[in-house]
Design a protein around this nucleic acid. Structure first.
Lengths: 216, 216
DNA sequence: TCGCTCAAGATTGGATCCAATATGGCCAAG
DNA sequence: CTTGGCCATATTGGATCCAATCTTGAGCGA
């Protein structure tokens, strides 16, 4: 059994750094600095950066370097619109193939998430886990990867947005999750599609109400 | 003005080779052979392969090598289902921002395409150009790239499928294109969405009728 | 004949080195 | 004071070389 390629290690490291906010959008990501920090040569760093670029996390300018991707409001909204189309499909494909364990996961994650109400950071992580659990039945990894990439590229901005949540915002979110979970557990594909679309759509509307968060 | 990075040159070369059918699905893509063929070192080849992997054109197995991606029927159908969701969105976002030149392109490409009726290879190319022209108004490149990647990964399989077209299949296709073009030229977003979804859906149905083409 | 072991060859992964390009500061001209 | 051009420096892009891993096929034994 072979060791894991350094490229993957570097990619994961940078991915985490970007999503945790350690590397802010627009921040320069120098090959040399990353290489020395992780004790590897620049080669795996370069390949990792290409991978992250394809995931939408960084932007590479030839002969200039890589920077953490910056999303303006329009781009962010566009991603939400794509999610509104793709995630209902993922739900429909997932429902019906969910094992009992996976259904239990959905319920468990939903309850854990509700328990984190008000704690922005933990809620963010839990929210992600819950939604992805709903798509656990998707057979082809391609669609799942696209969705995960969407979540990753917007994670940084959802964190900002969730800071503006009122108690009622949390409640509404939790309630929508309960409806979605119900649909998943009962195999209601079509109903789940609508719920998920509306769920994401509401997030997008909220996003457009806080458009100012993108200016700076 | 700087020269274009070798990585991009290699990537384009391999992309063309894969789409033209020169490299068949499952074919091994050795770094060394590509490098010597193009007169470059293996470094840009490796980076190009990573890029193509992110586009879904090749599959890289660590320490083993890269192979042209093979799609089974399920994966191919899944991509079509995603297209059925995303391309209507792209149409809706594009329509309304189309310039007069872009509208002329749509008409011109549609007529050129009809003139190629019966010529599988040329029809394939024209079909692609026509559809992409309908999305020319999309502002954010991210969605467009995803759609192009979908077309690229399935190009090889559409070629097989188009070989089974009867005269009536061509006619139906051309007629649907006329309806789509009409919607684009008149800015009928919602109508265009439905037409495109049904257009792709019909292709997917045809695909499932020729499922045997995937067995070998 | 079939399956297993193991070593030689081939191929990929990574490090180091050199060339090409962009960045940033400095100086001079307007 | 601003702006344009120029050169030193830092950083990326690519080539070459070495190490690690996988693949292949011959040999052996059941």
């Amino acid at each position: 059994m072979g060791r894991e390629p350094m490229t993957q290690v570097v990619a994961r490291h940078l991915r985490d750094a970007i999503q945790s906010g350690e590397l802010e959008p627009g921040a320069r990501v120098g090959q040399e600095s990353v290489a020395t920090e992780l004790g590897v040569s620049r080669i795996p760093v370069r390949e990792a950066l290409r991978q992250l670029e394809s995931e939408g996390l960084v932007v590479i300018v030839p002969n200039s370097g890589a920077k953490v991707a910056v999303l303006d409001f329009e781009e962010c909204a566009e991603i939400y619109k794509m999610r509104e189309r793709l995630e209902p499909l993922a739900f429909a494909e997932s429902v019906g193939r969910l094992t009992d364990e996976q259904k239990d996961d959905i319920t468990r994650l939903r309850l854990e998430l509700e328990a984190q109400t008000g704690h922005a950071q933990a809620y963010l992580e839990g929210d992600r886990r819950f939604h992805l659990a709903c798509y656990a039945g998707v057979a082809t990894p391609r669609m799942l990867k696209m969705i995960v990439d969407f979540w990753n590229t917007t994670q940084r901005y959802r964190r900002i947005l969730i800071g503006t949540f009122s108690d009622e915002d949390y409640d509404l979110n939790n309630f929508e999750h309960r409806l979605i979970a119900e649909a998943a557990l009962n195999g209601w594909g079509r109903r789940g599609e609508d719920l998920i679309r509306m769920h994401i759509e509401r997030s997008r509307f909220r996003l457009s109400h806080h458009q100012d968060l993108f200016n700076r």
